[in-house]
Design a protein around this nucleic acid. Structure first.
Lengths: 212, 212
DNA sequence: TTGTGTGAATCCCTTCACAGCG
DNA sequence: CGCTGTGAAGGGATTCACACAA
């Protein structure tokens, strides 16, 4: 289809999908770009433009069929198949993510958990045994892991990313505050909690009544 | 100074600050926009443009004084003062955040933790007692809470946001997958982990060799 | 009539290129 | 010289506005 879909468009597609799913029960048949925009982030024109990059899913004068648009969005986002996820780092963030119910609900299945700490290796999380991170490559290969969640200290992140990629991982969700270097066929998304707080700090400081 | 600083600029300022902090020890005196760009996300021109929105901190032919630029960036981001943070939701994500060492290091101090679950209320996390969320307004007011971290289910998020804002909170870090409605003087940053995974899914699906 | 799909216009962000200061 | 600070150019992304299909 088309080239170069922007990162913001992708985010909005996720929003639309979520809106459709909460709509499926309540509303009956169709949504307009207007309704979708109200529940998402944005304007009706933006919704239509976003969708137009992938085809023409609507009916003029009517709107979009909820069920069909939902299916198409899942296809577009690649959610029409299960994803095999490995979690690297069994610390606090790792454990929160492991139990995050929305992941499974969306088809992201955690098939392995790793840590470097001998005190943690061998422990059980539900039915998952925490493995030595030394086994990373083996397990990624054997289990066909697609995505790796890196919840490890900054110093360890690049090396672990390299190893996961080398073993076949195609995407990395990175919680470490470093910019990872990866080959072009590998996708990386960064989550940096401190940065989010700093953004809040910035906005409040600027909008505040203090001229400092 | 100027108006309308973009969200991406703010993120980059955070990057620059982090780069400077790791530099302060190793390097001696000055950095060029080139070096800063290499460690951050971006290009030398972008670094200079970003900084130029806030003043002229560099010396031509020399670069930026590391220590001074660090100080200015902390000022710009509003990090030259402590922030009082309340954590709402003592679940797994909440507990991971509470212990997140980088928060304190950057001046974000968690002064209260709330939950609605009677089984959790009264429990101790370090020296913090988990409070009944019914006390939210009181405590936010009494403790002078600036920022609220919402790590609660989607259904509860908007109501809790309203209450926190009403009690004086100026910023919200929102982990619930809903778009919060807040007055214009309140800043919101969303963290949506499922969306990040979906973005990975999208990229991999598109770049993949499978035509499906 | 309603609401999509889409070129055209607009706005904003990034990149370029260079004047000017140290 | 070297490197910043910045107007101008370029490129993307949003918004506008309307032809057209149901």
């Amino acid at each position: 289809m088309s080239r170069s879909i922007s990162e913001s468009t992708i985010r909005r597609l996720s929003h639309y999908l979520r809106a459709l799913e909460s709509l499926a029960a309540t509303n009956g048949e169709t949504v307009s770009s207007e309704e979708l925009a109200a529940r998402g982030n944005t304007t009706a024109a933006q919704v239509r433009k976003d969708l137009s990059h992938f085809g023409s899913f609507g009916k003029r004068g009517l709107g979009y069929n909820v069920e069909e648009l939902r299916r198409r969005l899942r296809e577009i986002l690649g959610l029409d198949r299960p994803w095999r996820v490995a979690l690297v780092g069994a610390g606090r963030i790792g454990s929160a993510l492991y139990a995050y119910p929305d992941f499974k609900r969306r088809g992201f299945e955690c098939v392995a958990v790793f840590d470097a700490d001998p005190a943690k290796i061998g422990a059980q999380w539900g039915d998952t045994t925490i493995r030595d991170v030394a086994e990373l490559e083996d397990v990624v290969r054997r289990e066909g892991v697609d995505l790796v969640i890196l919840a490890v200290p900054a110093e360890a992140a690049q090396e672990l990313a390299d190893r996961a990629v080398h073993a076949g991982a195609r995407g990395i969700l990175n919680f470490a505050p470093v910019r990872l270097r990866v080959p072009p066929h590998v996708a990386v998304e960064d989550v940096n909690l401190v940065m989010e707080l700093e953004a809040l700090s910035f906005h409040i400081t600027r909008s505040g009544s203090n001229g400092a």
